[in-house]
Design a protein around this nucleic acid. Structure first.
Lengths: 339, 339
DNA sequence: CTGAAAGCGCTAACAA
DNA sequence: TTGTTAGCGCTTTCAG
């Protein structure tokens, strides 16, 4: 085992001061060619690697960004993250992914590490926590499904990323209704459940679309679930075998949709002839699946890339407007006219 | 914005020394009840959060673990990671996921941050780098598809995790051959390509299985690709429309398999009647897909959990034997007798 | 252009 | 039981 080589060892080996080593490592241009070479030679010989922890203690810049997510096994999140990473990588930032799974968010995990910024992609984190983080001068970005008009409520200090889920979902429901569906199940992840006056835009779009088309809301057609595959299967089974069986099912995301299709098939249903099933997010798998899933596209990677760019701006002291991303209805094979 | 509150501020506010604050924060039992309460009250009032960066500079323990992976959008990796996290979380460790995507591995990213341990789940990292990391007293674990007998070559300092891919793949190929297939394509990720004498166990199983059954190896039936979905589609298309079309396709993982099935369908093939397509990993989606994918199961989450447990042992100074995980052939709907 | 020295926030002897 | 202090590895004035 090699014992830790520090800047001091390099200084001694090269016969210079520790400050000179620092200056060389940080590419200051006033170091003479001769010393630079001597230092670099020592660095190589000793296998010296700067300690970024110590550096960040001194500079108060950690070059680390946290991403908080709920379900890292869901391609929606990983696609966004890949976008963030791609951009972050260019600037030398390291990304720490904090996967909450179904655990509660504990703010200490963020406040105790010296992250320069944090992307929040889950609703498990309260607005209060978000503000608390931002107040400590950590660039904070929130991926929200809140609508445009609600954005005003939010603190200026938080960068808001808002895919326009309302419009996307509205178009999706209208498409279903236009195809003769009236009994439409709303089957989604628990995070979307916040009562019917929810700020969740998919749920609000559901309620609005029904109302505009004079269809009565039927609470028994709604189910909020976890991300556990077995529980989703059970819930899908229940919906599909209920007496009050819907003719179309809106699943909160493409995973839910694919699982629901799978259960439907095992029950002998033909999709979409017997029942229409639609998703949300347009993850890569949704167009590989059979039948290809009708869904709403979100510009996932691009959201990540743009999000990081905005965060850089923020860290450079600029104040920013919320960013709204367009969404788009994509009609594929898993849905059709009501029979 | 709240300016940074340090242990010094708390000490002043509570009228004690900074050492006492430390002792309270670290739950030392010799602090008097009175001081403890005073300190805790100040901590709360000022909103003090310890700076873990400073702490780790002092203690040389960062409580951070890195996981290096190639493709975070692949559920195989995320499932393993969830297992690692679940266990790590219990001990208060934070996981940093370093997603190489198709970038080259730069060892500095590990050596400059003070990780207590690192899980390597990609072949992009050379044995030389691995040893370099382990030499610096960072607990190092390598998920390898190397066979049992090759394990001996490796440094004792590196924890080896070896799902028994050889046996799993061998069974898979034998199953295919038993069903009359002789023209079996090997279609997989580039990382598996290291020549026919490769240490990659899936490739070796392929070569061995053919040989044992007196089937001649046909290099034109082999294709190594990236993880980019479009490229995989193109390559699958090429295989499926070639004059030398195989009757069975082994895809390097379930993603490859599902994409290949999708392309086959679009080309008018019935799977498995016209062609058998099998995967590897048994990711959750493979049993949801239609047809359900024939694959080889790896105990993913459990591998993660166990891996972290082993790492804890290692960090406590124990030396360990390589861990071999069983794999299991799972025959489902995407494969069958040759027609 | 280079070096000495202070200090980032914390812990851990050691002294009181 | 509590406080003083040195020092983890680094950067950054400020002198030289």
């Amino acid at each position: 085992m090699v014992s830790r080589v520090t800047r001091k060892d390099v200084a001694k080996d090269a016969g210079v001061s520790t400050a000179t080593v620092s200056n060389v490592m940080n590419n200051k241009d006033f170091v003479s060619e001769e010393l630079r070479e001597r230092v670099l030679a020592s660095v190589k010989r000793l296998g010296y690697k700067p300690n970024l922890t110590a550096k960040s203690l001194k500079t108060a810049i950690s070059m680390q960004i946290a991403v908080i997510t709920n379900d890292i096994t869901n391609q929606f999140f990983t696609e966004v993250i890949v976008g963030i990473e791609e951009e972050a990588y260019k600037y030398g930032y390291t990304i720490t992914i904090i996967n909450l799974a179904d655990r509660d968010f504990n703010i200490d995990i963020i406040l105790e590490r010296q992250y320069d910024g944090v992307f929040v992609m889950t609703d498990n984190v309260s607005m209060h926590d978000l503000k608390n983080i931002a107040d400590r001068n950590i660039a904070t970005a929130f991926f929200s499904n809140i609508s445009n008009k609600d954005i005003e409520d939010f603190s200026e200090d938080i960068i808001m990323f808002c895919p326009d889920e309302y419009t996307g979902a509205k178009n999706l429901f209208q498409y279903l209704i236009d195809n003769g569906h009236e009994k439409i199940a709303f089957f989604s992840s628990r995070r979307l459940k916040q009562g019917v006056k929810s700020k969740d835009m998919r749920l609000r779009a559901y309620v609005d679309a029904l109302e505009e088309n004079d269809i009565e809301l039927d609470e028994s057609l709604m189910d909020f679930n976890t991300n556990d595959i077995k529980k989703i299967v059970t819930a899908a089974h229940k919906i599909l075998t209920s007496e009050n069986r819907p003719t179309a099912i809106f699943a909160g995301n493409d995973y839910y949709a694919m699982i629901t299709v799978s259960v439907a098939k095992s029950l002998g249903f033909d999709v979409p002839r017997d029942i229409s099933i639609v998703g949300f997010d347009n993850i890569p798998m949704s167009s590989i699946f059979s039948p290809k899933i009708t869904t709403v596209d979100m510009p996932k990677r691009n959201m990540g890339v743009l999000a990081f760019k905005e965060m850089m701006e923020k860290m450079n002291g600029k104040t920013l407007k919320p960013v709204v991303f367009p969404t788009k209805l994509i009609v594929r094979e898993s849905s059709g006219k009501k029979n």
